[in-house]
Amino acid sequence: MQQHSFYSKNVNWSKLRQDTYNKAAGAKTKAETSVAISDAFKELNDRHGMFAQYKYEFRVHDSTFIKRLSPELLYEWKKGVKVKIQMLGDVAYLLMPSMPVGTQPDIDREANLLNDSIAKLATQHPKAWIIDLRLNGGGNFRPMLGGISSFFDNGVIFSFLDKDRKSTNPVSFDNGQMMIDKIVQCNIKTALTPMHQVNIAVLIGPGTGSSGEATALALQLRKHTKLIGTPTAGYTNSTQGYWYNNGATYFLLTTARYGDRNRNYMPVQLQPDIAIESNNQFSNILTDNVVQAALKWLR
């Protein structure tokens, strides 16, 4: 934790180490040290991380975030969220769900699903676009950004900054391909006409988290974009997992924050350019007040 955590500079490690040893002094097994270690982990206040050992698991309880999740959001998540597209007059609407995938075939599949959905909408020659990320709680940003890469001009969009502001893993676009460290991340089968000059309204809210926030951030950093809605979940950072004790002990730690092209830390919680509390009318999108606000700005 001291070596890898983005938040390690906020902790008095000499004191915490001694306190943890004292709490674990009576432990007769490694499993019995779990509470003492979780108390140490708690000092990082890492809302995006977790600690697990044997059958024990601990995350920092985020009551403020939980209270922000409306019944409508929870209902939509329970139903299961899929990519949704439709034309709202002369504006194209794309709902992008979470994408919790890890293998390359799954990343490619999800990215091409997005790309093909955009291609289908593009045949209607929309004058502007709405990308709805309010139900996108995260997963993997590679298929998300790879699937919408036609909206980005060439160049670096953001990178990751560690606790010492060292920049790593720049995320960039080149002729419709999304890359990390100049390595193409998705095999997009059908190249689309570049659309980096179109206006895009990006809908955000408390259900926009983690990789969903990374996608919102990338779009915000392009020109001709506004974020509309309410603040995001507040997990705009990068995590890394560490296994110990022959796989029985696991730490998921926040190791970096997103940074812009000038190595400035980006906010952990994204704020809307146009603030409006959502009525979350996903079943009848034209009655959704955030969609209505987006249409007003785009037209």
Score class of each variant (00 low, 15 high):
T193K: 09
L286C: 08
N12D: 15
F158C: 09
N115G: 02
W77G: 04
Y54G: 00
L203T: 09
L298Y: 04
P71G: 06
L145A: 01
M178T: 11
R299D: 06
K296F: 09
N112S: 04
T208V: 04
K28F: 12
Q281S: 15
F282V: 06
D19M: 14
S117W: 01
Q104I: 13
Y250D: 11
D260K: 10
L113W: 00
A256K: 14
E57A: 03
G137T: 12
F152Q: 05
S167L: 07
A294L: 01
F282C: 05
E72I: 03
Y56I: 01
K79T: 01
F152L: 10
G138M: 09
I85Q: 14
A218V: 00
T225Y: 05
S211P: 00
R47C: 04
D153V: 07
L44E: 08
N237L: 11
T208F: 00
T225F: 04
L192P: 06
E76P: 03
K28S: 14
Y7I: 09
A256R: 15
N10V: 09
L95H: 12
D46L: 03
E213I: 10
T29H: 11
F41G: 06
L88Q: 08
Q197S: 10
P143W: 03
F58Y: 15
D162R: 12
P272K: 14
L88S: 08
L227D: 00
N245I: 06
S172V: 11
A31L: 06
G146Q: 03
N279L: 13
H48G: 07
K55M: 05
G155M: 07
T20W: 06
A293I: 07
I200D: 04
A191D: 11
G49W: 00
L114R: 11
S278Q: 13
N175A: 12
T103N: 04
R47L: 14
F158A: 03
L145V: 00
D174N: 07
K182C: 08
